[in-house]
Design a protein around this nucleic acid. Structure first.
Lengths: 117, 117
DNA sequence: TAGCATCACCTACATCTGTAGTAGGTACTA
DNA sequence: TAGTACCTACTACAGATGTAGGTGATGCTA
């Protein structure tokens, strides 16, 4: 079972499921900042598609609504994302590293931290 | 002029232009490995779209064909790509680092190299 | 039980992306 | 100059993605 490829919006929905207990559609929708909150049915469509991709599953029904949970881990999904990016660079991580440091997103402390792993 | 967002295929075309002198459509097409080489017109479409995005420009006409060159640097384009990925992670580079190391794509040598910068 | 709030489902649709065909122009060659 | 090979410009189209409306079902409340 190859991990599914997730899009930007799909990832945002997954994020809601990863960072919290199982949620309902409405609940997921509300994790979006009010200003740029998609319509209820938009989130619903995304969740349904994620279901099709086996990335989420409905765990139970409460009242008249369903509750969903992530079916793939954050690590798996994010890992795939990074691997894909890396592939675009021919597998060379140097540009990535350089950029991370350049943008100040990565500090020496981070590196040392990572080194320990 | 915000740097344009490039897709996978578009990046591959850009790569051809970055790594070499200005090229013709045919020339770009031939940089693709024979096995998975898109049709001439496919590359042509991509180049035209890149033109629309101001990512490439035609520099001259030789015989009956045009010669194109990159209008954005590799650094700019790749940087944008990385920043976007990072944004998906809430700006935290840790997962990226972890993954890089985990997958063996990142070596200590790379880190030391990057540190110098 | 009648209504209102809320859901689930299905359907629609514009855009983006990858992919490529067609028609007509250009240039070199016999 | 007629033929052949290659180009350009335009058009088409399927699948993915973001976005959301409509309709009927469910459940809580007066």
């Amino acid at each position: 079972m190859t991990d599914p490829k997730l899009t930007k919006l799909e990832l945002q929905v997954m994020e809601a499921l990863w960072s919290g207990s199982p949620r309902s559609i409405r609940n997921i929708q509300q994790t979006f900042p009010a200003r740029k909150r998609p319509a209820y049915t938009t989130i619903q469509t995304i969740v349904y598609r994620l279901e099709g991709k086996k990335a989420v599953r409905r765990v139970r029904k409460v009242g008249n609504f369903h509750v969903f949970e992530a079916a793939v881990t954050r690590d798996i999904a994010q890992g795939r994302l990074i691997d894909e990016l890396l592939a675009l660079f021919g597998g060379r991580s140097q540009p990535v590293m350089a950029r991370l440091i350049e943008s100040g997103k990565l500090t020496l402390a981070d590196i040392k931290e990572a080194e320990k792993t």
